[in-house]
Design a protein around this nucleic acid. Sequence first.
DNA 1: CTGCCTTCATTACTCAGACAAATAAAGATG
DNA 2: CATCTTTATTTGTCTGAGTAATGAAGGCAG
Lengths: 254, 254
Amino acid sequence: MPSRARTTTIIDTPEGRKLLRIHGTIARDIGIRIVSGQFQPGEVLNGEVEASDRLRVSRTAYREAVRILAAKGLVESRPKTGTRVSPRAKWHLLDPDVLSWIFEFEPGDDLLASLFELRKIVEPEAAALAAQRRTEAQVTAMAEALADMTEHTLASPEGRAADQHFHAALLEASGNPFLVTLTSGVGAAVAWTTIFKQRHMPLSRDPIPDHRRVFEAVAAGNAKAAHKAMANLVDMAFLDTTRALPGPADRNAT
Amino acid sequence: MPSRARTTTIIDTPEGRKLLRIHGTIARDIGIRIVSGQFQPGEVLNGEVEASDRLRVSRTAYREAVRILAAKGLVESRPKTGTRVSPRAKWHLLDPDVLSWIFEFEPGDDLLASLFELRKIVEPEAAALAAQRRTEAQVTAMAEALADMTEHTLASPEGRAADQHFHAALLEASGNPFLVTLTSGVGAAVAWTTIFKQRHMPLSRDPIPDHRRVFEAVAAGNAKAAHKAMANLVDMAFLDTTRALPGPADRNAT
DNA sequence: CTGCCTTCATTACTCAGACAAATAAAGATG
DNA sequence: CATCTTTATTTGTCTGAGTAATGAAGGCAG
């Protein structure tokens, strides 16, 4: 028996990506196909046996992948009927993984606009709350992150990490755990597209001053100013992102 | 061998609850213990073998439960170290299941306040967007839901369903899928507490007029009025909920 | 013909036991 | 003392069997 080349299952680990087990990679694969429209809502996936041996994995691994997708609202499985893709209304669109899968394939234009619409609603308010509630330690953390951002630019990984730290500290300062999860997930997904952006055009505009304005307003405890500064920052980020992503991307008009 | 009484595994299905498989019930069990603080972040769960035979289930079922929890960011498992509860910052607090688990055990007072803070930020804006973008069909749907709410009251299951339909239609009208998932999940969790509320006190105030004002503003396409009316509605809902939930609930001060 | 009940076939669900892979910690080596 | 190697433990994966749920087809009365 030639057996399978399973022992050499080197999981596709591009670079800074969290390395996944088999069930993780399969969940990601199918998840991407679902959010990209390759598997339409209502469509039934192949049965466990067929699917698992088409993918050359055990049923166990495949089933765990399906559990993950079901936990994120992408599929629903019942005996006799099989596993079918859920309607889009049931998808947990704000789940970090689902978001990353969406942005993995294509940003999606209208979805991107919706996402920034959400940011525009939430983040300024979060900044305003942070201005009212921030502790000294949080101000210090934001200051350090801002300094790191200034030193390394957004063109470097360190700079992007500093950007993330800045926003994380700000959200932390808002004192609302729901705002933290919401915006951190969204922010991570958007940041992922920023990398694409950097490839196409060097960098349209220096984002540091925008960040500095937000920081100073929060540090000063000026909620109104923080709100305004953050609103401006989101607007600018949206402009940068849309300008960088060229195509009309009309491959599937949902 | 007497075997086990597994054949009589009647899954605990209280009433209107979605009936769960074994892996689902286990995930829910552990999930509730995590969000309620019985399993602290950083703590490692029992090994798969020990845990699975303590629960009298197969390792497969237990593992699928862990996959679900991992998909929701509650745990992280690696070989040799085991499965450990993730820090709260990694939890997907806006996941519908996680939310329901949180509200299953204890509303949580500060968490409840944070949740309504989020609603207060998002829902008025969603109403404003709905006022600008709603189609005739969506207005009709909202009108019907409102009529049903008026007929049956919130004291009846039909009335609560109508309430959900009303808000769902409104969110749909906002044209932003992220707002839909965000608010529908949050709304469902809050609605779940409404049932508790009804048990303790009959009903403090008639919510119909609040809803009617929102509806009329949206139907008229008046974004500002819709924003204001919805803000008022959320405020009232918060007052009702906090007034109904009595205790200081000091059992675990996070 | 219609409506309800029973039977049946299909599918996911659960179980059991074995082996593989990863990795933190202990131990050996320089 | 530092670094490499070994080891033990835990999750990860595979296989094959049997169970439970359920939509659909068929039977039976009205």
